[in-house]
């Protein structure tokens, strides 16, 4: 028990996080760049075209990783919020604050690529497709968390309010998702969903898997980097941050 507490305490110390993240970050950047480059080349040039959708199918390699990441980032944000609320670990809140804009950006990317994909598939830019609708709602959830954090003048209140809202949101996401799926099947039963097919051949799903892993690495690397910046911003009065500024001159 004592060991666990000291570990949690250590993990919570911005100084310790600043050091360990500096060592971890390069690996995630390398992985992100390598995986995204390989996945892009494979997905764009080498994967076979879809027999129904032709080459427009290649949008899947950006649409699905972005959608995965958009959902995962919200969950990570809520977990970070919980950690912050329970153990008062400031770094968790800093990371949550830095994740939100990236999550919103990923949601936007998945919406945009979905809309563009809709043109050759459905003949229209927007369809109230279950996946797109859930993504749109997720975007609003992100904007709500970002707006709430920005609305408070006290940083501590802002952090705790954003944490609560992220947790409320994460409980609601599956409910929203299932109700939207249910609503969609009720109203448009026979429409073709863009990504709703099983049994993709290996040449198609392998690059997708690589892209998904690449996007996740990118998320981790960027969050580490921006959390380090946030530490500098919030802890600028601490002795060790001053010393750091002296060293990196």
């Amino acid at each position: 028990m004592g060991m666990i507490w000291s570990f949690i305490h250590k993990l919570g110390s911005p100084k310790w996080f600043y050091g360990i993240s500096a060592r971890l970050m390069p690996w995630f950047w390398v992985a992100a760049v390598a995986l995204i480059l390989v996945g892009s080349a494979w997905g764009l040039a080498f994967a076979p075209a879809d027999y129904q959708q032709g080459n427009s199918f290649r949008i899947i390699y950006v649409h699905v990783p972005a959608a995965f990441l958009a959902q995962s980032i919200f969950v990570s944000m809520a977990v970070a919020g919980l950690v912050y609320m329970v153990w008062k670990i400031k770094v968790a809140d800093m990371a949550a604050a830095m994740m939100a804009p990236l999550g919103a950006a990923m949601t936007f990317v998945s919406l945009f690529s979905g809309a563009v994909w809709g043109v050759p598939t459905w003949g229209t830019w927007w369809m109230w497709d279950a996946r797109l609708t859930s993504m749109l709602i997720l975007l609003f959830l992100y904007l709500g968390v970002i707006a709430l954090r920005g609305a408070f003048t006290s940083r501590d209140s802002a952090s705790r309010a954003a944490s609560v809202l992220a947790m409320v949101g994460v409980i609601n996401i599956p409910i929203i998702k299932y109700s939207v799926d249910w609503w969609y099947t009720l109203h448009q039963p026979a429409t073709f969903t863009i990504t709703g097919r099983a049994a993709m051949p290996m040449e198609m799903w392998a690059p997708l898997l690589i892209m998904v892993l690449g996007f996740y690495s990118f998320f981790i690397a960027l969050t580490l980097m921006r959390t380090r910046s946030e530490i500098l911003r919030r802890e600028s009065n601490k002795r060790w941050v001053r010393d750091l500024a002296g060293e990196t001159r």
Partner: peptide, 19 residues
């Protein structure tokens, strides 16, 4: 702000209520 926070969370209730 309150409408931005709350309206997305209202959607499941709306779906099943109107349904």
């Amino acid at each position: 702000l309150i409408s931005l926070l709350v309206l997305p969370l209202y959607i499941p209730v709306l779906i099943f209520g109107a349904g």
